[in-house]
């Protein structure tokens, strides 16, 4: 079984600060990490490989420094890492990103065997779009299974897969066919601690680095900023609330004092809360 995981190196959003004057992200000193949602995809891929045998390849598009995250993935026990890096890819929106990734996935298929499953995380924590997975699936003509919370079975002979998919208001049990693209839901597994052997291998491994040309990109105008139909026209920081919270002291009877303070400021709440408590 050949499984490919598309992953992304992202700035750790918890540590992001916005420059108050220029409204740009201050990147200095902000550590980069594997997009946390992608870790669930990597672990799920490794589990399938452990069960069915085969190989796991990780693919990322990004600057040369994304090598760090690929090595991290190798340390979990991934077999092969491909870095798609080229200045032509810079400034890509989701449509241009899916063009580049789909092209690289075709090349991976040609060189290392066609993937049976392509995994992605649910979304990234920097872009938050959740659209690259579906876009890649569409471009490659793969069946798309998003928000998968559980893989119930894989039949490699019959080329069938059964999954549970988080839908609005319930869970869909789906049967579909390989090859497919799965975006995996967070929290479905926990990324393993790689073995010492894998850590050593990861440090020494030679990454596969492809430029647009290496990956087989035929139309460079479909990549990066030029290939992006969307345009970011304005970037701005959210407006801070003019007023900070009114801080109050509560005496000996803090519960009642707090409720008094609350109802004094929001008289309507008293009636609303009473209604709600009664109706419950």
């Amino acid at each position: 079984m050949h499984i490919v995981v598309c992953m992304k190196q992202v700035p750790d959003s918890a540590q992001i600060r916005v420059h108050p004057v220029t409204n740009t992200i201050m990147r200095q000193g902000v550590p980069t990490i594997i997009n946390p949602y992608d870790l669930f995809a990597i672990e799920e891929a490794l589990r399938l490989r452990d069960t069915f045998g085969g190989e796991v390849t990780v693919l990322t598009m990004g600057p040369p420094s994304a090598e760090d995250s690929l090595r991290k993935a190798l340390s979990f026990g991934v077999d092969r890492a491909v870095l798609l890096t080229d200045r032509f890819f810079a400034g890509a929106d989701t449509l241009a990103t899916t063009y580049a990734l789909a092209t690289a996935l075709r090349k991976i298929g040609a060189e290392f065997g066609p993937p049976d499953i392509v995994f992605t995380g649910k979304q990234t924590i920097d872009g938050d779009t959740a659209q690259v997975g579906p876009g890649v699936a569409k471009r490659l003509g793969l069946i798309q299974l998003t928000y998968v919370s559980r893989i119930n079975s894989v039949d490699t002979d019959k080329r069938l897969i059964e999954v549970e998919r988080r839908a609005e208001g319930g869970v869909q049990q789906l049967q579909s066919r390989l090859p497919c693209l799965i975006t995996i839901l967070e929290g479905v597994n926990e990324i393993r601690v790689g073995s010492l052997m894998d850590a050593l291998k990861a440090a020494r491994a030679t990454l596969i680095k492809w430029s647009a040309q290496d990956a087989g990109v035929e139309d460079i105008t479909k990549c990066g900023l030029r290939g992006s139909p969307t345009i970011v026209k304005k970037v701005f920081a959210p407006q801070p609330r003019a007023q900070k919270a009114e801080l109050i002291e509560l005496g000996d009877n803090p519960g009642d004092a707090l409720i008094d303070a609350l109802f004094q400021r929001q008289p309507k709440l008293e009636g609303e809360l009473e209604k709600l408590a009664r109706g419950y």
Binding site: K233, V235, F236
Partner: peptide
């Protein structure tokens, strides 16, 4: 839309 976890907002167009 918010981006970077809501630290920034950006306004996006699809012009052509």
């Amino acid at each position: 839309r918010p981006t970077f976890g809501g630290s920034l907002l950006c306004t996006i167009f699809t012009l052509n």
